[in-house]
Amino acid sequence: MAFSSSTKLLLITAFFALASWQQVIAFDPSPLQDFCVADLKSPVRVNGFPCKDPMAVTPDDFFNAARLDQPRNTMNKFGSVVTNINVTQFPGLNTLGISYARIDYAPLGVNTPHLHPRATELLTVLEGTLYLGFVTSNPNRLFSKVVKKGDVFVFPKAMIHFQMNLDHEKPAAALSSLSSQNPGVITIASAVFGSKPPISHDVLAKAFQVEKKLIDWLQNQFWENNNY
């Protein structure tokens, strides 16, 4: 069958559109089986975790006694602690595209600026009043708000975000759901000043427009994290 020039052009355009669409939907494919409980001890290395033998899976693989109703110890320099429930603590989450966290804040405690490279985060305030927000990519617009018990706020994927308990006397708490079984976290301050090996102080001094001795001082601090 012969095709006219216009028909050929239409077919070629449709082909490339379909190819582009396939690339988009292939970024994070849906599971190809009912479940894929992570085999954390497997020597196999893939983008994620290999599946445990389905015949060896038990109901306990889909259960985690995290006791997220219980407050955590916030005695650290940030005054906050994050209790993560992702695939490394809960193998049943593997391939399901979701994880969870509880965040506890001491009075005036801060969950410092950070980002999740693989997930959007939906935060629900359990107790207290939080000042929170996120910063967009360049030109770096800040979206911030004061939220209270029962309020919900979303941090788009890979955006730098933070929370602070505004109360001087009472603790606060929140629950977060994240759109990845292994969302990852990059804490901005410790990533910049606490990397191993360190970033050249020449680079950081120019980037922050400060003297090298200040960069040296920052790099010599102990950069802990608040993940439980």
Score class of each variant (00 low, 15 high):
residue 112 T to V: 15
residue 43 P to H: 03
residue 228 Y to S: 08
residue 139 P to F: 02
residue 68 L to W: 00
residue 17 A to C: 08
residue 34 D to W: 02
residue 130 L to V: 13
residue 215 I to Q: 02
residue 167 D to A: 12
residue 95 T to E: 04
residue 200 S to C: 02
residue 73 N to I: 07
residue 132 L to W: 00
residue 17 A to K: 00
residue 223 W to C: 04
residue 108 L to H: 13
residue 221 Q to H: 05
residue 1 M to A: 12
residue 92 G to L: 09
residue 203 V to C: 06
residue 17 A to E: 02
residue 110 V to E: 10
residue 224 E to C: 10
residue 40 L to M: 15
residue 206 K to A: 09
residue 50 P to E: 09
residue 132 L to D: 10
residue 186 I to D: 00
residue 77 K to I: 03
residue 7 T to I: 08
residue 199 I to K: 05
residue 115 L to H: 09
residue 136 T to V: 08
residue 227 N to F: 15
residue 80 S to I: 06
residue 135 V to Q: 06
residue 31 P to C: 10
residue 146 V to K: 14
residue 22 Q to Y: 04
residue 163 Q to T: 12
residue 155 F to Y: 14
residue 108 L to A: 07
residue 214 L to K: 06
residue 83 T to S: 15
residue 106 A to V: 02
residue 108 L to I: 11
residue 91 P to G: 10
residue 129 T to H: 12
residue 153 F to M: 14
residue 129 T to P: 01
residue 119 A to I: 05
residue 3 F to K: 05
residue 129 T to G: 02
residue 39 D to F: 12
residue 83 T to R: 12
residue 155 F to G: 09
residue 108 L to E: 14
residue 166 L to S: 07
residue 89 Q to V: 12
residue 202 D to Q: 10
residue 153 F to I: 15
residue 214 L to A: 08
residue 123 L to S: 12
residue 149 K to N: 04
residue 92 G to V: 07
residue 40 L to T: 08
residue 5 S to Q: 12
residue 216 D to T: 13
residue 172 A to K: 07
residue 190 S to M: 04
residue 115 L to G: 02
residue 104 D to E: 10
residue 111 N to C: 08
residue 38 A to P: 10
residue 28 D to Q: 08
residue 218 L to H: 00
residue 49 F to K: 07
residue 50 P to W: 11
residue 39 D to Y: 00
residue 43 P to D: 04
residue 11 L to F: 00
residue 109 G to V: 06
residue 55 M to Y: 13
residue 193 F to G: 03
residue 120 T to I: 04
residue 47 N to I: 10
residue 182 N to R: 02
residue 194 G to L: 06
residue 138 N to F: 00
residue 179 S to F: 01
residue 201 H to Q: 11
residue 82 V to E: 03
residue 69 D to Q: 09
residue 65 A to F: 03
residue 11 L to Q: 02
residue 150 G to S: 00
residue 122 L to A: 10
residue 224 E to T: 14
residue 196 K to D: 13
residue 142 L to Q: 07
residue 134 F to W: 13
residue 186 I to L: 15
residue 225 N to T: 14
residue 117 P to R: 01
residue 59 P to G: 11
residue 170 K to M: 04
residue 117 P to M: 06
residue 197 P to H: 03
residue 228 Y to N: 13
residue 48 G to L: 10
residue 84 N to A: 15
residue 18 L to H: 00
residue 113 P to I: 08
residue 225 N to C: 05
residue 84 N to G: 08
residue 34 D to H: 07
residue 111 N to T: 09
residue 30 S to K: 13
residue 179 S to D: 11
residue 173 A to W: 01
residue 173 A to M: 04
residue 69 D to P: 02
residue 196 K to C: 11
residue 130 L to M: 04
residue 91 P to I: 09
residue 81 V to A: 14
residue 177 S to Y: 03
residue 19 A to P: 02
residue 19 A to E: 04
residue 90 F to Q: 11
residue 18 L to G: 02
residue 87 V to M: 00
residue 198 P to M: 03
residue 123 L to A: 14
residue 155 F to C: 07
residue 15 F to I: 05
residue 66 A to K: 10
